[in-house]
Design a protein around this nucleic acid. Structure first.
Lengths: 343, 343
DNA sequence: ATATTAAATTGACGCGCGGAAACTTTTAAG
DNA sequence: CTTAAAAGTTTCCGCGCGTCAATTTAATAT
């Protein structure tokens, strides 16, 4: 089938009967050449499996087709899902996405951005670690590379932010819990890694005020990204010491809730809204595993698809408009309450 | 601090007082130059933040410092953990790892390998999808690129395989369950995506035979990588139809077990080894969430660290020995039984 | 048919680096 | 102090492609 191996664009241009500069144009943008020549090139492409040397391509190009996707913690399935969505969309748009995880480590996050810079990416989608992030370094990076932040906002960084509306989350869960039973305490880490956590606490207080109820916040200790274990340990203490004012608890996020449910299980608490239950647990995120906890977790769901879709769209707009927006827009998507069995 | 921006290696060589070819040697291998010159270069490196153009570097080099890491499904925290380990080790060895997930899609797996090929990687660590993988394409890839398989073996593919000893898993869980109670049924997918699943079934039968017990295999329907949901649906049927010969069940893997526990919770089964329990559930893998299920999951744990460490070491050996081994070795690590509360 | 415009060709240069050859300097060994 | 080996320097070429200017060819309009 393949008569001879094509070594470079020169040779490929020869066998396709088109000049090399035109072939080069084609690979940069297939629509930039006439339909007839495009057809000829693609016919040749079928017979000879040539692809331009990616290193030589990117060497001189001002802008590559590379896109960096950086998430804070890949072992969290939420980010794996986001990554999958974003990756696919980038690929279909003709870009070359590369996925990175900071694995919860701010130094690694900086290293990733550093390495990314030398890939001359057309743009970067960054879900930062948050509080732990080295903001100065990220700011430096954003000056050099068109960057869209998602999931976790850092004021002023990046050309845009796309995330979820934390108030929408907490207001719905608080409203539901108070309407159907006792008002909830708020269960969170004392020093949360993620800025969304702070907004959720504020939203909780605001909602309780609005309902004329006394907010009650339980802050547990723990550093790092092992939220389940932190939630479990914290919950064991809380439950043993009987520090809950009511039978209702709202977790800042699902991973903490998973840990809390695990603690409930250990201590023999019955979680749910049945008459024989002694605790109601709700949470925020709709983690992929929230469906499979015991009992299944009532939670406010991210609009994952919208967030990742809009993130990608925004990045494309950013790239097309030369890497800068006039003003930094923050897009927030509301949540959807998912009623399951835990509350 | 930085007097002027360094544009290329030529300029950097000038300011460091070393000739360009020597500087080039340094960047290929810092130990290949004299200590004194290395010191001079690194002193210059502190004052000027120059780094060689990665595209120009890789263009002519026969072998790059790139390493590809391909996992079948990143939303499975097991692979996220593996990836983290492997990434770090590659970086400290001076390589440039890039992480890819096939997201359960065989076509994407092939695309990833295809894209990887054009990165001229020094080597690739591949955890294949398994049954669904396009074996011919993977074979082609392995001919071009030094590849080490891990986690999931495909007979004859890659220069080596590093994984876990499935017999070690199942023998321990079966032995434990039979020693402490009724012999277990084996709960698995009828068409498992992963080849380890088949080996586990065989091991189960073998162990039951050895103990003079009748094996009982429950095969549930379901395609894809949403194991938890598949396990849950399957378990709901099994439990409703009362198709369990004993009160003991061994799941092929933890993700199925998580689904099964979820079903148990829904149907009000009490899982555990207490006198008031009506089901014992054990499993294999020690998934990061196995600690947090209700009840916590008794399972045979992968020696994750050993597998990922040995995989990386093997790949490095492979790279140093020119990309080929005399014979394909398969290294299997035994499991460790983790007793928790589900059995 | 001719004028106009769009697209392709020709020929050439440059990107930043790897690598080789021939030569010079430094280092270590006797 | 001599000598050979090791390391560094100079000079050059090539990698594969982007890109540009000048030119020719093809498509579209008048």
């Amino acid at each position: 089938m393949t008569q001879k191996r094509i070594r470079n664009m020169e040779e490929f241009a020869a066998v396709s009967g088109i000049s090399r500069p035109t072939v080069s144009k084609y690979f940069n943008d297939p629509d930039s050449v006439r339909r007839s020549t495009r057809a000829r090139i693609e016919k040749a492409l079928e017979r000879y499996d040539y692809r331009p040397n990616i290193f030589a391509m990117n060497q001189n190009r001002k802008l590559t087709k590379n896109i960096g996707i950086v998430v804070p913690f890949m072992a969290d399935p939420v980010f794996a899902e986001h990554a999958r969505n974003i990756e696919q969309r980038c690929i279909s748009a003709g870009f070359r996405p590369t996925l990175y995880s900071a694995h919860g480590d701010p130094a690694l996050e900086v290293d990733i951005l550093d390495g990314l810079r030398s890939l001359k990416p057309a743009g970067v989608l960054l879900a930062p670690l948050g509080r732990a992030s080295d903001q100065k370094e990220i700011e430096k990076f954003c000056r050099d590379v068109p960057t869209v932040l998602f999931d976790s906002n850092i004021e002023g960084l990046g050309e845009a932010f796309i995330g979820s509306d934390n108030f929408s989350f907490v207001s719905q869960t608080v409203e539901y819990l108070t309407r159907t039973g006792a008002p909830p305490s708020f269960f969170e880490m004392r020093t949360p890694a993620n800025p969304n956590a702070n907004k959720r606490r504020v939203a909780y207080i605001q909602m309780m005020d609005r309902l004329g109820l006394e907010p009650h916040i339980i802050q547990i200790e723990g550093e790092g990204w092992a939220f389940e274990e932190i939630g479990r340990r914290g919950a064991l203490e809380i439950l043993r010491d009987n520090r809950l004012p009511t039978d209702s608890i709202l977790c800042s996020n699902d991973r903490l809730a998973i840990g809390l449910l695990s603690a409930c299980c250990e201590l023999g608490y019955r979680v749910g809204r049945g008459p024989d239950c002694n605790l109601r647990v709700a949470s925020n995120d709709d983690h992929p595993f929230a469906r499979f906890t015991c009992p299944s977790l009532t939670t406010a769901a991210h609009d994952y698809d919208s967030v990742s879709n809009r993130s990608v769209e925004t990045l494309f707009e950013l790239i097309e408009s030369g890497g800068e927006f006039r003003n930094r827009e923050e897009t927030l998507f509301p949540s959807r309450l998912v009623l399951r069995n835990s509350a």
